[in-house]
Amino acid sequence: MGAQETEQTFTNRFLEMLKQLWQKNSVIVVFVIIILLAGLAAPRFLQPNNLLNILRNTSIIGVIALGMTFVIIGGGIDLSSGPVLASAGAVLIFLQRMVAETGDPLLPLWLPILAALGVATLLGFINGFIITKAALPPFIVTLAVGIIARSVVMYFTRGATIMGNRVPEFTGIGNGSVASIPIPFIIAMGLFALLHLVLTRSKMGTYVYAVGGNEDAARYSGIKADRIKIFTYMLVGLCAGIAATIEMSRMAAVSGTSSGRLYEFEAITAVIIGGTTLSGGKGRLVGTIVGFILLGIVNNMMIMLNISPYLSGAVKGGVILFAVLIQRRER
């Protein structure tokens, strides 16, 4: 009898452990299952080259999604990331394509990149400033700023694709690898490490959660909620600027109409899949990492399995619903 009891408690404990594992990491569990399923459906999927390619392709969305996580935890949303990427990209390409009479680039590469990051961060600041000082809903403000930014880019590019200067030091950012790991993914991971530290260890990160959870209570605790919110919008702007740098360097070209198109929704999708709630106050960057890689896998599988690209929206929409559904059951 004693042995039976021990066995039972052991099984119970094991089940309890599995349950806890699931509750805390359901996104990761689903992630592993999807990778296995994908491997079964298309064995080519698991080839290292394909996997690395997925990481390279998805890192641009990933970088934006990291910043977006801060905004959403802080109770906001940014619908302007795509246009901000295009704006920063345009600035980058316009400056980078200028050549001296000798045919060499006129400006050292870091200068156009810095300008692009600056413009993106500035646009983020404009978003945050209007949202906090005019007390307007982030949804409206970022939508409007996005539309304006996109329109200005189209004006300056006259709707055409503008080619940059295809020098290896530039194209290497988006297309190169270090120890066969794609540089865009290295950038995304480096940014993740830094932002994870900020979000979990710094006071600022905690205040982002507090402002998203209860802005008034945060204010009464002495937290400058407006500053925190502006910071999150500047951060997602900066992230869009970094994403722009990667995106531009891959093609060495910018297009007013298609650069960064709908990237904001892809990024928001990644954040939601990662378990960050749109109501604010809760979320993790690790989830976002899983979220954007999962999106990359979905995109990749669509190609592998020869599914019409027109159906990609249907699949992604399904993934969002599924992700939100399993997270709902945890609560």
Partner: peptide, 9 residues
């Protein structure tokens, strides 16, 4: 609940 605590933290 409104101004004292961040209930979800």
């Amino acid at each position: 609940k409104e101004t004292g605590l961040v209930l979800c933290r």
